[in-house]
Design a binder for these strands. Structure first.
Lengths: 226, 226
DNA sequence: TAGATTGTTAATCGATTAACAATC
DNA sequence: TAGATTGTTAATCGATTAACAATC
């Protein structure tokens, strides 16, 4: 059966399932059991069956899962059978990189407009589209459709720009600014905090030494008190 | 007291603490209680105190936390008081965007070399550094130091390139390829899976409709069986 | 049919929240 | 001192894992 609401832990794993199933399908694998998929993905068979059954029973007892069928189902769950009109708001390094990202168009995401405040960028060609002045944003949105806005403006402008996008009717924001956005209930967002990710990497680089130090300190405090 | 090992849930929140404390410090806030910080970050006061106490007691009873001190401590925990030599492996859209990312240098990350296989990119200037042929990677690493490798090659090359980096002595990989890397125990990594993040966004866009459909289907199956 | 593997319920484990004594 | 807020232990909640009946 399916649950009324799915936990974030499960949702975060869905794209991973999709990636692995796509690979398996490409490799011509017809069927897979939860045990085999678990070994491949470093998850337990139990967890995989629980995750999948949030959305319905796509398997077959005694057989396992048909790879192409399961991939298709998860693609549908992720909304990947649809196409999306995308605008890029902020044409800096990241905005341009996203606009030019290859897989993007292949997966049904179409960049329809690019906006930036910087006069030096206006008119510049990004992915075959001339950058428009940020002033034109609201007018453009009244005349064209956009399903997703890529928010790649500086942190200081992020919340104000997000408010403006929500005001103009945008229902989904892919946020690259290092800021936690506050949005109306009917606007969804997901963030890619590059610096957060980098900081987790440096944490892991230093974790061992950090705890050696903390223990050392604790030991010395202990001695002092003796 | 401090724990010998810290859960991923806590580690993921550390950069968020750092970001908010930096903002508070910039705004001139001297002290903050776990309750106030919790309100700001949408966490419970309890969770904040638990998280912080994984690393030691940085607060003061009856007073709260000194913002600059706590920010400094968390920066140290994240390894941000250090400087890092970085190489970019793969000079496509993402590799170049990362190399040019402003905050990067400001935070103590220095791009020392950029590599790519594509002949058309070799010699091209990225962030003031000429792109080198991938062939030169191993020789370069025997002569220079690099703490972190940014892995921004196509998915198909990612694991092989990561193996090569580990072989050459790299101890940390920031992975942008949509692949789950398998690495030796002493090599840490963290990934930024852009497409995964985008797919979570489209999931959220479609979640409501998805469950309406699932319920509809369940209702119809129920009728059939009656 | 026998064997395999799912879907699902129950048990366990870990993370979050609540409570409160310690103490500034 | 009284009030406030931490550090830490205990209770709760939710996610993961185990178990097993259903069934292909």
């Amino acid at each position: 059966m399916s649950k009324a609401h799915v936990s974030d832990a499960v949702i975060r794993r869905l794209p991973m399932y999709y990636r692995h199933l796509k690979e398996l399908e490409k490799a011509g694998v017809e069927r897979i059991s939860s045990r085999e998929l678990g070994e491949r993905m470093n998850l337990t068979a139990s967890q995989i069956r629980q995750d999948i059954n949030c959305f319905g029973g796509f398997g077959q007892q005694g057989y396992g899962y048909r790879v192409p069928e399961l991939r298709w189902h998860i693609g549908e769950i992720l909304g990947l059978e649809k196409q999306y009109d995308v605008i890029i708001v902020g044409a800096g390094n990241i905005g341009r990189a996203v606009a030019n990202y290859d897989g993007f168009r292949k997966e049904g995401f179409f960049v329809r407009a690019v906006f930036d405040v910087s006069p030096s960028l206006i008119g510049v060609d990004v992915h075959g589209i001339p950058v428009q002045a940020m002033d034109k944003l609201d007018a453009w949105l009244t005349e064209h459709n956009a399903d997703i806005a890529v928010l790649s403006v500086p942190a200081s402008q992020a919340q104000a720009t997000a408010d403006r996008l929500a005001q103009a009717g945008i229902k989904a924001i892919w946020n690259f600014a290092p800021v936690d956005l506050h949005l109306p209930e009917d606007v969804v967002s997901n963030h890619v905090h590059l610096s957060d990710s980098l900081h987790i990497l440096t944490y892991r680089m230093n974790e061992e030494a950090l705890f050696r130090e903390i223990e050392e300190k604790a030991r010395m405090n202990g001695q002092e008190q003796d």
